[in-house]
């Protein structure tokens, strides 16, 4: 068995999320090859070669992969696929966009967002917003899989010494053009890999009030997240959203402030190690999953908490 993992990279480094997919690949077992597609991506390929457990790195260096357009990257992966038993990617917006297209072109099913590997063809994945866990067996010859990063530890970024092999570009599919991106800028840790997350909901009442959470987050070196209600109300950008339709997180500490705890939100954070809820409604469903609940007005409790942590 040989497994190909599509890795995402940025500024010459492999993104954290991809390290989790490599651990999933190790649980499946077999040789692990990592695909780095991009423009001027040699540095990223060299970084991938150092990841523990990686047997070989394939580098496809071409301007058509600069924006990871699904039409072009899927074409590349499909060309490489006959050599592999499993094709893996992390269930990020990039992996979710590309892998089902690959699966369809190979006429195989995809297994989305696995959280555990039972055997090389059997996997566990959450359904119904995480309210049920399905064990599924893939019957196709090539298994196409996306991996939920929070279900697996990150593979060590050093300790490996794989060879880097250049593979030919599959060219431009000629179907789509990348125009540009508007990325949220933040000094704080990335939401999906943060050790601590402070999240706000509708109870924050305005975008300005998120400053209270930012002050608390700074004390804890935490990332700031939000519920859908807070995003829809325009308090924070959409990429802050934690939940079934946003990001899935599992930090050591998740502090939910002014969040009621709808099932769609719980789907994104209920695997956190410790959950704290601060809400003035003592019947809010968030208290059913919180390890520590504080029934209080967030506008007094959050500044008090920030002050207490400074002591």
């Amino acid at each position: 068995m040989t497994i190909l993992v599509l890795a995402e990279h940025h500024d010459g480094a492999v993104r954290d999320g991809s390290l989790h997919a490599i651990t999933a690949a190790q649980k499946i077992g077999g040789d692990i090859h990592v695909l780095i597609a991009g423009q001027n991506a040699k540095a990223a390929a060299d970084a991938a070669a150092k990841i523990a457990g990686v047997g070989k790195v394939l580098l496809a260096d071409d301007a058509v992969y600069a924006a990871m357009l699904a039409e072009n990257v899927a074409k590349l992966i499909v060309g490489l696929a006959p050599n592999y038993s499993h094709l893996l990617a992390t269930a990020t917006s990039v992996g979710k966009n590309i892998m089902p297209r690959v699966a369809a072109l190979l006429d195989v099913a995809q297994v989305s967002e696995i959280i555990s590997v039972e055997s090389p063809d059997t996997f566990v994945r959450p359904i119904y917003a995480g309210n049920a866990l399905a064990t599924v067996q893939a019957t196709d010859k090539i298994k196409v899989i996306t991996v939920r990063a929070t279900g697996f530890d990150a593979a060590p970024a050093s300790g490996g010494s794989a060879a880097v092999e250049t593979v030919a570009s599959a060219g431009d599919a000629g179907l789509s053009t990348f125009v540009g991106s508007e990325l949220s800028k933040s000094e704080r840790p990335e939401l999906t890999s943060a050790r601590v997350i402070v999240s706000g909901g509708r109870g924050m009442q305005s975008g300005d009030n998120f400053k209270l959470l930012e002050a608390l987050a700074d004390k804890l070196n935490a990332a700031v997240g939000a519920s859908r209600a807070a995003v829809d109300a325009g308090y924070v950008p959409n990429d802050y959203q934690v939940g079934q339709t946003g990001k899935i997180v599992a930090p050591e500490l998740y502090i939910a402030v002014g969040i009621s705890g709808a099932i769609q939100h719980l789907a994104g954070m209920k695997d956190s190690k410790v959950i704290v809820a601060i809400n003035k409604d003592e019947d809010a469903p968030i208290f059913q999953v919180a390890d520590y609940g504080l029934v209080a007005d967030l506008f007094t409790a959050v500044p008090e908490l920030t002050a207490e942590l400074s002591k």
Binding site: T122, L133, T135, Q137, I275, L305
Partner: peptide, 28 residues
């Protein structure tokens, strides 16, 4: 016809119910 066989569907592990704290100091 389906290509993925669903072998079983189970409920996820329940989180242990937590405790309410009375003050910020107790929480910290």
């Amino acid at each position: 016809s389906p290509r993925l066989k669903v072998l079983k569907v189970v409920e996820p592990a329940k989180r242990k119910s937590g405790a309410k704290v009375k003050s910020v100091a107790e929480l910290v």
